[in-house]
């Protein structure tokens, strides 16, 4: 078995970890990540912080405008701003 088959770089591990936060990492990728976490403290620490951020984002009630909603507000405001500046 080739070493690279199971072993991944730190950067690749971080990339998989990021994708895993959004449920976009495959089972195979998650397995490789777990393996790396078992011996690499940098990956372990990154994963811990990253998972914490995901938990915080889920816990917090954060809302933001969709692009079209923001554009709508911008459009209304621009009209008034133009009047104000003239």
């Amino acid at each position: 078995m080739k070493k690279s088959f199971l072993f991944i770089s730190c950067d690749e591990a971080k990339h998989i970890c990021d994708k895993a936060q959004y449920g976009e990492a495959s089972s195979w990728e998650r397995l490789k990540l777990k393996l790396r976490i078992s011996w690499c403290h940098i990956t372990k620490s990154y994963t811990k912080k990253n998972t914490k951020l995901t938990d915080v984002m889920q816990k917090a009630e954060v809302n933001c405008l969709k692009n079209d909603e923001r554009a709508n507000i911008q459009k209304k405001f621009k009209k008034q701003l133009a009047k104000h500046q003239n």
């Binding site: 009630e61 954060v62 809302n63 405008l65 909603e69 923001r70 507000i73 911008q74 405001f77 104000h84």
Partner: peptide, 27 residues
């Protein structure tokens, strides 16, 4: 004021929706 919407609209929207619970009213 030229930068208000791009800089603050999300913060103000989040502040509002947590208090009025309605997207349209918050906007």
């Amino acid at each position: 004021p030229n930068k208000w919407v791009s800089k603050y609209s999300d913060y103000l929207f989040n502040y509002t929706i947590s208090r009025v619970s309605d997207r349209a009213i918050a906007q």
